[in-house]
Design a protein around this nucleic acid. Structure first.
Lengths: 254, 254
DNA sequence: CCAAAACTCCGTACGCCATACGGATTAACC
DNA sequence: GGTTAATCCGTATGGCGTACGGAGTTTTGG
């Protein structure tokens, strides 16, 4: 599985694509495609078959043109992925209408992110340092900050809180998505995989060490949440702890 | 950058490599290599040049043999990476000697993990669902649990707390490592990159929307922590919140 | 002492990737 | 109608993991 990097292409070309340049040049043959159609097709391919399957050849096949024709509309794969990212983040919704104060709003944001990463698992394979400066990324940061505006935090703390919550949503979604991916590619559930491993592990000479806590806790944890609900439980547990921690901070400010 | 998957190979062969089979077969020419040397070389390559540079050809070059000779000692790249993972985790240290109770112990574990991911950034490019069942991975889970044993949590809560803290260390290290990687491959610091982007952004027609909170908070956050300390600050801030949240949970149990 | 077996080493080959380059074609402008 | 700009795309490069099978080397069994 290939991890791509956002911000890898020419920033000027990326920005033009992200914000849309309405210029219609006149000369030359009628274009068969648009950048928009290419982006939509690329997202569909990545959703269906993963970022690995997203090649310029595949997009071209899907659109019925030769591979090199894509480069007429898009400078390269790096810029294309920047636009795909911004498009995907555009699906996120503000927490403005959510009742229940900052805590409920942050919960909405965390869950919304969690859902997004499950709808578009390929997002997790794009390292979003230096994210694409598109309308959706701008809007996302703005309404995330709005969720905790006016509750007594400093500007720096607001930025840190938003980063903590969204970062947590991403990292727990990563675990969840990876588990599902492992299940798909191995054809075994986590339970089946573990079951197959136990007899092999019993033949191993551990050199006299034993693992009392691991055995006890691991068994309980394994029984309690099988693979289907495990990552979701981890998400709910972690989110509750993090919000409690933010509560403590807010309390010291009041 | 390629992301690899742990647990991708033949589990039996992986386990043999992980725990070491001392059998010395007799027939045939004297082996020029050992699995051990191959693993050490692979880790050195990944440390120095990243997981992308880790190819079977590169390892072979490094050891002065032909590419296919590697397969005499190691079943394939997937199993090799499993062993590399376990070897790396073996560098982690228990928190038993740390004074200051469970909070100080969890801090040690988080920082120890954070450091490890910076020493071996390629760990972040290996998706560790279904981790290699080697001695180090077993030991890690055991002493992580020991750090919070006997403070009133249920077995399930102990598992969840450990997963939360180590998961957070991984995800914030990911941000940090990605930032450093972006700096290296672009030749620009975050500050320089942003500076180059501003004039381009000013030419953009945002369609009348503006972003009051983003501008105010973003500027403060950007000024406060430049790229060098930004991720480290996010780590410290998030860790404090998470430990506060765990404190709240522990309090309800007391 | 010799043949068979076991083991190491490795040359070749396959299909797939992004995209640089330049040529052929097509449409609009002067 | 000639010039210019734009689209479309054929070809080629170098790197990847590893399947396959052959050649060389050492020990074992008789």
């Amino acid at each position: 599985m290939t991890t791509e990097y956002s911000g890898g292409g020419d920033p000027r070309r990326s920005l033009e694509l992200l914000w849309g340049v309405p210029e219609r040049p006149k000369r030359g043959p009628k274009p068969k495609l648009t950048a928009e159609r290419i982006v939509r097709t690329a997202i569909a391919v990545a959703d269906a078959d993963g970022l690995d399957a997203l090649s310029m050849r595949r997009i071209a096949d899907e659109l019925g043109v030769a591979p090199m024709s894509i480069y007429t509309y898009v400078p390269g794969k790096a810029e294309l992925i920047d636009v795909m990212l911004d498009r995907a983040f555009a699906e996120l919704t503000p927490a403005d209408g959510v009742t229940g104060g900052w805590r409920a709003k942050l919960e909405h944001i965390a869950r919304d992110n969690w859902d997004l990463f499950h709808r578009h698992p390929w997002l997790l394979h794009v390292a979003a340092v230096r994210p694409p400066m598109g309308p959706a990324v701008f809007g996302k940061y703005e309404f995330e900050l709005r969720a905790i505006d006016g509750i007594g935090l400093t500007d720096l703390e607001m930025d840190s809180v938003v980063a903590l919550v969204t970062g947590f949503a991403e990292s727990s979604a990563r675990v969840s998505v990876n588990a599902a991916e492992a299940e798909r590619r191995s054809g075994m559930t986590d339970a089946q995989w573990w079951e197959a491993l136990v007899p092999l592990l019993e033949q191993i000479d551990t050199g006299g060490k034993d693992y009392p806590l691991s055995s006890r806790v691991g068994e309980v944890a394994g029984r309690e949440h099988n693979a289907a609900v495990g990552p979701a439980h981890a998400f709910e547990f972690g989110l509750a702890r993090i919000l409690d921690g933010i509560q403590t901070l807010v309390d010291t400010r009041a």
